[in-house]
C-alpha cells in the first residue's frame, strides 16, 4: 500500500486542459465553457464497434487515460444504450453489424446524438461499401458529427464530442 501511495504522489496529476472544439473563436469558446459547466458535466457515451480494425477503439480507450481524463470533464462511457446521450460508432458498418447498430440506436432515449468516429465510419476510409459492408454510419442511423482520422487522435475525439454537444445545445428546442 505504501508503495502504491508513493507512486501516486510521485507521478502527481497529469491531466491536461480539454481542447477547444474545431472552429476556435470566442463565441464557440464561451459556448464550450457553458457546456462543460452544465451539460458536459454529465454526458453519457455509448460505444459501438460496427466492424473497425480496432485502431479507433484503442484511441477511444485512450480518452480515459490520465492525460485526457474525460471522466474529470463529466464525460463517461456507459454500459447500456438506455443510459446514453451520445452514440459513438466506429468502423465501416459491416452487414453483420448493421442490425445490432440500428437496435442500439433505437434503444437510446431522445434527445440522442450520433458521432461517426474515424475515416471508415465517416465514409472515407480504406473500407468502402462492398459485399460485406454498408459503408458510412449515416447509411444506417442519422449522424450529427463525423470525426475524420485514421484513427482520430484522442484530442480529435474530444473535439468531436464537444462539437456535437455544442451544436445540439445551440439548436432551438
Amino acid at each position: 500500500m505504501y508503495e502504491t501511495l508513493r507512486q501516486i504522489l510521485r507521478v502527481g496529476i497529469r491531466s491536461e486542459p480539454p481542447p477547444t472544439p474545431a472552429g476556435d473563436d470566442v463565441v464557440v469558446r464561451r459556448l464550450h465553457d457553458d457546456i462543460l459547466r452544465t451539460l458536459g458535466r454529465a454526458l453519457a457515451l455509448r460505444h459501438v464497434d460496427a466492424g473497425s480494425c480496432n485502431a479507433c477503439e484503442l484511441e477511444s480507450q485512450a480518452l480515459s487515460n490520465p492525460y485526457y481524463n474525460v471522466e474529470g470533464l463529466g464525460i463517461r462511457y456507459v454500459a447500456s444504450p438506455r443510459h446514453a446521450d451520445v452514440l459513438m460508432v466506429t468502423g465501416p458498418v459491416t452487414k453483420n453489424m448493421a442490425g445490432a447498430l440500428r437496435r442500439t440506436y433505437e434503444a437510446m432515449p431522445e434527445p440522442r446524438l450520433v458521432i461517426a468516429v474515424g475515416a471508415c465510419a465517416s465514409g472515407c476510409g480504406v473500407y468502402g461499401p462492398d459485399y460485406a459492408t454498408v459503408g458510412a454510419v449515416s447509411e444506417i442511423v442519422p449522424v450529427d458529427v463525423a470525426i475524420p482520422g485514421c484513427p482520430p487522435s484522442p484530442v480529435a475525439l474530444l473535439q468531436g464530442i464537444l462539437a456535437a454537444v455544442s451544436a445540439s445545445a445551440a439548436k432551438p428546442r
Binding site: G51, M97, D130, A132
Partner: peptide, 11 residues
C-alpha cells in the same frame, strides 16, 4: 465471431 467481417481479402 464474424461480426467484423468486411471483405478484406476481396479488396
Amino acid at each position: 465471431l464474424g461480426y467484423a467481417h468486411k471483405g478484406i481479402e476481396k479488396r
